[in-house]
Structure formats: C-alpha cells, structure tokens
Write a protein that binds this DNA or RNA. Structure first.
Length: 927
RNA sequence: GGGCGAUUGGCUCAGUUGGUUAGAGCGCCACACUCACAUUGUGGAGGUCAGAGGUUCAAGUCCUCUAUCGCCCACCA
C-alpha cells in the first residue's frame, strides 16, 4: 500500500498540515480538571519585536517537549503563551520606522506615537508567534496574553499601588544609568558592563593664587603649583566641585583644605579628604563630579558639595558647560583635551582598559547621570525569595545557578523602575497642580526640568501626589480638578515579573478566559506553575523578580523548578548576533531540514545547561533520523497485514511464545522507556534524545527489523513490530511531533491524533535482562563473523561455511536456535556448531570470548597478518591479566571493595585466562 | 577584584552517586545499491581524558595548584 510513498521524508508536506489539524481540533487547550494533575509552564514572553532565533528555538523546543510529555502522561498541561511589549526595544523600532518618513516621535506627539506603536504591533507583533507555530509549539494559543492587555495593565497598576502603600516605592535623586541615545534611565541590569580600551588622562588643577606655569616649573621645595588628577572621562571635569584625596596620603596631607581653580571653567573648588579615595590609583587625587558618577555622588552628599549637571539628556553638554555647550560628550572630550594641552595642563595620557556600562538595547555607552527617578525598595521583597530557594521550595537545574541567584539577591540594590519613554505602562501617579503651587515648587518634577532641578531634595512631599489605579476626578486634599499624570512609564520588567499570575487575569479575574474557563479556577489550579524554562541571561531581570512578585502578591512561589539551558553560540563559541553575521536562522533550518530535525538536533546537543556550539551540519543528524523513522514506518506498513495486530500486548506476551527476538525487542523498548522517563524527569533532554535515537536506529532498525525480515508475516512478528513502532512513536512524539503524527496517521490505530494518546505505560515485567544478554551474545557472534570476513577480504556476495565451537551446551543450543538468523546476517551458507575445537588445513580460525570460529580460507597471505594480530592481542591480554592479578592479590582491595566488584574482577580474570589459552593454541596452530 | 563554566580521538560533544578494555555524531579508510532507507548498510583506523600533585583498594569522575579559553558579577576615578 505504501510503495508509491517517497523513500525520502518530506517535512514540508506534513508539518503545516498537522499543525493546522492540531489547532483545529483544539488539542493544545487546557482547562482545570480536578481529576487530573495540573502541569503548567508559562512561556518566557518573547518581545513583540522579536524574530525567532536559535535561542528561542532551543528554549521553546524544551518547553514543548515537557508540555507534550506531561500531556501524554495524562496531566492537564497548559503552556501559557504571550508576548512582551518590550518598551525601549519596541519604541526604538517604531522610531526607526517613522524616521523613514522624516519624523521624530516628538513630531507626532505622545498619543499619535502610541497609536503608531499599536499599529505596528498589530502588523508585526505576532510574527514570533507564527514562528513558534512553525516550531511545533503546542501552546494554548487562545490564552495568548500581552503585557499591555488592558487586564494585564490593571495588574501592573495594582502592584504599583500595593507597593506604594507598603512604602516600598519611592522617588529619589540618584546617579542612575542614562542612555543618551534612548534618552531614558535604565536599571543596573539593563546596563551591563563591558571592557573598553580607554585612556587615563592626567590633568593639572592649579592652586588658587598660583596661576598655571609651564610644564617644567617647580618651586624650590620641589612641590608643584597644582594637583594632578587622573580621569577616563575628562569632559566631566566641567562638573567638578571638589578634588578628593585620602587623608592618610602623605603627598597631599598638608594641602587638604586648599582651594583649586578648576581649569577651563575657573571655578574655585576645594581639596577635600575622604577614605573612599584609593591612594594607589592614578595620582591618588580624585576629581569629584557629583552629578556624573555614583561614587562622586556619595562624596558630594557627604561633603555637601554642589551638584552640577553638565549634560543634556541626549549626551550633548548643556549651558553649565560654558564654551562647550551644545557639543556631544565625545566631541567635547576631544576639544577639552586640546584646550588643556594648549594651557599646559594635560600632563600625560596612558592607555587604560576599563569597563563601562552599555545600554542593553542600543549598546551605547551609558552615562552615569543624576536624575530624579522612581525606585522599588528590594530588600524586603528579596528576603522571602531567598528563603524559598534556600529551603528548596524552588529548585534550579543545574543547581549551580542557585548560587548566582542567591549572590545577586543577597546584594540586591533598589530597582529603578521609571523610564523616560512613551511606550509602556504609565506610572499610576497623578499630581495636583494647585497643591503643588502651595507646596514646595520643586517637590514634583516632570522630566524635562531635570537639568535645573534642585538636587538637594531627595524625599518628596506626598501632598499633591496621588497614587491610584484610576485617574482621580479631583484632588483629595483640595478638591482641585487640575490633575495630571506622571509622564514616565514603567520598566518593561515591572510588568513581566507578574507573568505567572497576571496571565490568568489576576487581580480582577472577571468573566471567562478566552479558553472559556473561569480565571479564578485557572489560577487556583495552575498556580504555582510547574517549571520555568529559560536562559541564564535573564535570571536577574526576570526569574528572581518573578519569585519576589509571586511570593509578595500570590503568597506562593511562581514555579517549583527552574531549568536554565545554555546559550546558543556559533561554532567558534561566539554569541550569535546579527552584527557578527554568524546567525543560523531557525526558519531557514526548518525550511531546509524540517522542524523535527531542528528540534531533535538542538536537543541532542544540549547537555544540562552547557552552552551550545552550533553549526549547520548538526541538523543533518536530525534530518537523517526523521528519514530513518519514515522509512522504517514505511517498511513496516508495507508488510503489515492489518488483521490481528491490535491485541492486548500483555495478554499476547503471556499467551504466545514470542520467541527470543521479539522478547528481546520488547524488553529493550521498555528499558528505553524507563530510561527516557528518568532522563526527562531530571531535565536531561539530550540523554533522552540520544537514548531514543540509538534504540530506534541501532537496535530496532539495524537488528530487529533485519532479524524478522524473512519471517515478517508471522503473527508474533506482525504484532510485535507494530506494537514497538507505535509505542516508540508515542514516546518520541514530544521530541519530533510532526513526523510521529504523520507516521501515526498512516498506521492502523485507534484515536485521531498521536497527541491524544497516552505515553506508553512501563511494563517492568517485560524487561528481561537475561534475554537482552542472550541476544547480545548472538549479535557478538554475527559481528565477529562479519569482522573476520572483512579482514580476510571475503567478498560480501560470497556465501561461505563456518563452524563455531564452544563448550557451553546452553550456548550451543542458543546458537543452534538462532542459526538461521546468524547465517543470513553474516552471509553464511552453512553453520556447524560443535563442542571441541578442531581446524583443518585451509581453514582460518579465530577466538572470541569462549568461542572458536572457523572459516575456510580464501586467498593467501592473510595468515601471517593474522598471526601478528593474534600476537598483539595476546600481548594486550597478558597485560590485562597482570593488572587484574595485581588487583586481586591486593589485600586492601579484597577487604574494602564491595563483594560484587571483587567477584566481577575474578570472573573477568578467569575469562581472560581462558581466552589467552585459546589464542595461544590458535597461534601455535597457524602455519 | 570576586564567582562560574570548559579543557576527553581530525571536528563537535556525552560520560548521572568513583568500580569491566572511556562512548556517540560528523569526518576519514575499505567494501556493498533490483531486496524499507545512499539522508543507507557492513567492517575498520583514530584517545597517556589540558598539566602537576594528592585522597582512595580503585580517579575522566573527588581535592589542591598551574595553564589556556569563555561567561557572569563589582561604585578600578
């Protein structure tokens, strides 16, 4: 019936078809079911700007395996999908797109711009969802959530208000990470440090009353009329309001308190003393720029210095920079250096590598920048989250990430959550203008006035500030209706950290979910979720914060297990990135090799949390495997007589004499099932995949199907080959969903889709180690005959006679019973079995374990060769025997090693001695 | 500066709590296409497990140090 079917598996003809079928039949849908155990994963929501890369492919392949596996195990399995609004990233993309029309977002205004972003989202925002479908992801798509859905926004607001009420949210003036390109504040996590090759500039700050002299000028005492400071960012000197030295520093001790003249600006600044200054660095004198460096800020606070902001939000210097007003920070650096040089104030320049924060969205070097931002106090939230992991309520796989997590949590800093962009959740903070007029004018500020702010103020007057999920009609203090909302939006992660419960319509939980379930029941049933699958990069951004949010707002952990997979890299170990041009596009791989191949290859090379080094050739393995499955299924179908295969396996196994071969493959299948279950329960995906691969290819196809080929129509063979195939397809399905469905649909079965089938149930009683051992012996014999033939250059098509001699009666009987198989698979004409070894002239003999194998010699010259080979083998065995004897004569070994090990070694030694005897006899017998 | 990971055949990697002669895929060599599959089959070559020391009856596996590569964290002006 299948002769017309191609001998090559063509994924293009099947994948989209079955995906559509699954979706149309609602097979991904999950709903609370009290009679079943819940299993739930929330997807790490990809950005709406995202396009599927290998990291996504790996991440989602793993999740899909888990979901499909648990679903087939009879658990109510929900994979909650959705996307993230990705504030800065999305705003950047849309800004770029309107720039093509020569527009800036300011030209459009806030509302119009947001409208454009929404349009963009409608058009492109679900690209990645379609791509996930290509991958086979079995998410409950009806539930797809977006972090800016209206209900989700309610959750964000409620959380903000709750934290405010608890006193965990505050506004403060701090030196934060500022991206001059995105023009927003960033959290510390969003400004990762990378090493850059910079310079250390040594600049002279003259003392007051001692006008700068030329380079060589020194007074008689040897002191110089200036202090030299070292800096990597010379342009910040324009904002200097002190120079600091260590009080213990002998070089400066008597100069402390003197006044310096800041070059170029001619501001008088003091030489102050503070322990924070490291004597060994640079000259031991630190220029202090309180508005542009976090350390200097601390110093500024401590010593009551002036805070002078010299920069516009876009990185150009401002009016405080005097002559340099309007210049870009890096241009200004060059000009300032020129000017200093001219005045003889630039002492020297050294190369200096330093690490600088970079914007994680646009990679611009961030500017430490004093500004007024909103923060979350993290310590109180972190404590229970540390506890949950310490006590093992949440487990990391691999465990080592636990330390990374704890280390971060224990040193957690307050979280800067306000962003000066437009796309995102606006802070639910409202201000009353009338109250403000009465109160301190500077209590509340919109962002635009940053540069002229009064930085001395760090707490705000709460009067006139209303924090509320709803826009207030009027001011609760003065009844004024002149109310406006804060311009800032929240950090994207301030919404993502609610993902495990806000996706269930928390907190309102009104109406029905798109799946037709009650959100309240959903949340109760599926929360805490089972496992989170993600990459190490976002442990801090997301994982840690979700744990904190879950414990704070749900009073329970958000997930029990965290599986951290590795990063996908190119073959040279570099991260895949567009700029490096080393991307392997998963969609291209799907197109070329198929989705199953992509999934299988990725999974089989991903060992626990190790980074993945990828090259395109790796996908051939997956493709070839799919093809193997295809052809094996095809072969079985071609030979299947559909009459009597749907018997109950257990009864059949009990009632019928299946024969060694069938008992063997069944035993092997259940051993593999057991192993794969074990691997999956411990998140060892690669081991599971490799176990499946080698079983199917090298045991089922290479041995089993070859063995039964000649008697394929027997009832036992029909039933068992069918049963093993269909069970194997079910077991493999989570890994390769498409081809297993395609094959499933072609074989006779009950049930519509393989997805709705149960995982094969482990039948321990069918696992039979003795049978497995016996068959291994048979395989070994076939292998050794094949090997001899090959070494003697006996042409493959030549049928020869062979004799096997061995003393064990049971083994002789086994070989006798398997004689037909052995002869066919090693191309023998006749196989004679005997107890006493004998060899005639013109015959070649070999020894393997307890057997002699005798084959007629064809050709010449090979005897000598074999004599040498046997000689080498004898040598090896001699040395092995020596080491074993040594081991067994060691009293400590006998005393301390477990008895099984000692016995095993003893048996092994005896076997080796037996073998040695045979080999020596053999060698002597050779001419 | 602190932490983590890696180092196993030509290449990419497995190797779970220490216990036979260290495995796989790719590549390589030889042979084999009317017989499910050449995206195949059969056979083969190829490794002192980065180096040094230690613990142990026993080390690729545990400990210490060293080297090389990579990653993460940190307020090194």
């Amino acid at each position: 019936m299948m002769n017309e079917v191609s001998s090559r598996y063509n994924p293009k003809e099947t994948e989209d078809k079955w995906y559509k079928f699954w979706e149309e039949n609602n097979l991904f849908s999950a709903r609370p079911n009290p009679s079943k155990k819940p299993f739930c994963i929330v997807i790490p929501p990809p950005n709406i700007t995202g396009i599927l890369h290998m990291g996504h492919a790996l991440n989602n392949a793993i999740q899909d395996i888990l979901i499909r596996y648990h679903r087939m195990k009879g658990e109510e399995s929900l994979w909650m999908p959705g996307t993230d609004h990705a504030g800065i990233a999305t705003q950047n993309v849309v800004e770029k797109s309107i720039a093509k029309d020569g527009l800036k977002r300011q030209d459009l205004g806030r509302d119009k711009f947001i409208e454009r972003v929404r349009e963009w989202k409608e058009k492109y925002g679900s690209t990645i969802i379609h791509q996930l479908k290509k991958l086979g992801a079995s998410c409950d798509w009806a539930r797809t959530r977006f972090t800016m859905d209206s209900e989700y926004s309610e959750a964000v607001k409620k959380v903000f208000v709750a934290l405010w009420d608890k006193g965990l949210i505050y506004q403060g003036d701090k030196v934060i990470n500022w991206c001059p390109r995105c023009q927003t504040a960033l959290s510390d996590e969003e400004a990762p440090h990378h090493d850059i090759e910079g310079k250390l500039y040594y600049i002279r700050y003259p003392f007051k009353g001692q006008p700068p002299k030329r380079d060589s000028d020194r007074d008689i005492s040897g002191t110089v009329p200036y202090v030299v400071v070292a800096t990597t960012r010379p342009e910040t000197m324009l904002g200097d309001t002190a120079v600091a030295v260590n009080p213990k520093d002998k070089r400066y001790k008597k100069l402390i308190g003197k006044t310096l003249i800041l070059p170029l600006v001619n501001r008088e600044i003091k030489l102050i003393a503070d322990n924070m200054v490291e004597m060994k660095f640079g000259t031991g004198a630190l220029k202090v720029t309180p508005a542009h460096d976090p350390n200097d800020y601390t110093l500024g606070k401590k010593h009551n210095l002036e805070f002078i902001n010299i920069m516009h939000p876009d990185g150009r210097l401002n009016e405080n920079a005097g002559d340099y007003n309007g210049m870009d920070r890096f241009k200004a650096r060059e000009v300032i250096l020129e000017d200093l040089k001219e005045k003889g104030l630039l002492e020297k320049i050294e190369s200096h590598s330093l690490s600088a924060g970079h914007c994680y969205r646009c990679h611009t070097i961030i500017e430490p920048y004093l500004s007024r931002q909103w923060f979350v106090k993290m310590k109180p939230l972190a404590e229970p989250a540390i506890e949950a992991v310490r006590k093992g309520k949440i487990k990391f796989y691999p465990k080592r990430w636990e330390k990374v997590y704890l280390n971060w949590m224990e040193n957690i800093q307050d979280w800067c959550i306000s962003r000066q962009i437009w796309w995102g959740h606006r802070l639910p903070i409202y201000y009353c203008r009338d109250c403000q007029k009465q109160a301190n004018e500077s209590a509340v500020h919109s962002r635009q006035s940053t540069e002229t702010m009064d930085y001395g103020l760090s707490t705000m007057d709460k009067k006139g500030v209303i924090v509320s999920t709803l826009k207030p009609e009027k001011c609760p203090h003065c009844d004024s209706t002149d109310i406006y909302q804060d311009e800032d939006v929240l950090d994207t992660w301030f919404s993502s950290w609610l993902w495990p419960f806000a996706t269930f319509y928390w907190p309102e939980m009104k109406g029905l979910s798109p799946s037709g379930t009650l959100p309240e029941l959903d949340l109760k049933y599926f929360y805490p979720t089972s496992v989170l699958v993600t990459a190490p990069e976002i442990i801090f951004f997301w994982v840690a914060r979700m744990i904190m949010a879950g414990l704070e707002f749900m009073k329970d952990i958000p997930f029990k297990d965290i599986y951290i997979h590795g990063t996908v890299r190119d073959i040279e170990g570099k991260k895949m990135s567009k700029s490096l041009g080393n991307i392997i596009d998963p969609l291209e791989i799907i197109n070329e090799y198929g989705s199953d191949a992509l999934r299988f290859s990725l999974i089989s090379i991903t060992s626990q949390g190790q980074d993945v080094y990828l090259s395109k050739e790796r996908f051939e393995q997956g493709r070839n495997f799919a093809n193997k499955i295809w052809n094996a299924s095809r072969f079985i179908l071609m030979n299947l007589e559909q009459s009597n295969i749907r018997v109950d396996l257990c009864a059949f196994y009990k009632d019928k004499d299946l024969g060694l071969v069938n008992r063997w493959i069944l035993s092997r299948f259940y051993s593999v099932l057991k192993e794969v279950n074990g691997h999956l329960d411990k998140y060892r995906f690669n081991e599971a995949a490799n176990t499946l691969y080698s079983f199917f290819w090298h045991e089922f196809c290479d041995w089993y199907l070859e063995l039964i080929k000649t008697d394929i129509k027997s009832e036992e063979n029909q039933v068992i080959m069918y049963k093993v195939l269909e069970k194997f397809l079910r077991l493999l399905h989570p890994f390769m969903p498409f081809i297993t469905e395609e094959a499933w649909q072609r074989i006779p079965h009950t049930g519509n889709s393989i997805m709705t089938q149960a995982m094969p149930h482990l039948q321990e009683n069918i696992i039979d180690e003795k049978t497995e051992k016996l068959m291994e012996g048979v395989f070994e014999l076939i292998n050794i005959i094949r090997n001899i033939r090959s070494e003697l250059d006996i042409p493959a098509q030549d049928s020869i006679d062979a004799k096997v001699f061995l003393s064990s009666k049971a083994k002789r009987a086994l070989i006798e019973s398997m004689s037909g198989h052995i002869r066919r698979l090693s191309r023998l004409n006749k196989l004679t079995i005997g107890a006493e070894y004998s060899r005639s002239e013109g015959e070649f003999a070999a020894v393997f374990k307890d057997m002699h194998i005798v084959i007629p010699l064809s050709g010449s010259g090979s005897v000598q060769e074999h004599k040498v080979k046997i000689g080498q083998k004898i040598e090896n065995i001699h040395s092995e025997i020596r080491s074993k004897e040594k081991m067994l004569s060691n009293a400590d070994f006998l005393k301390r090693a477990p008895k099984e090990i000692v016995d095993k070694e003893r048996d092994k030694l005896n076997e080796l001695k037996e073998l040695l005897k045979k080999l020596e006899a053999l060698k002597d017998g050779l001419r």
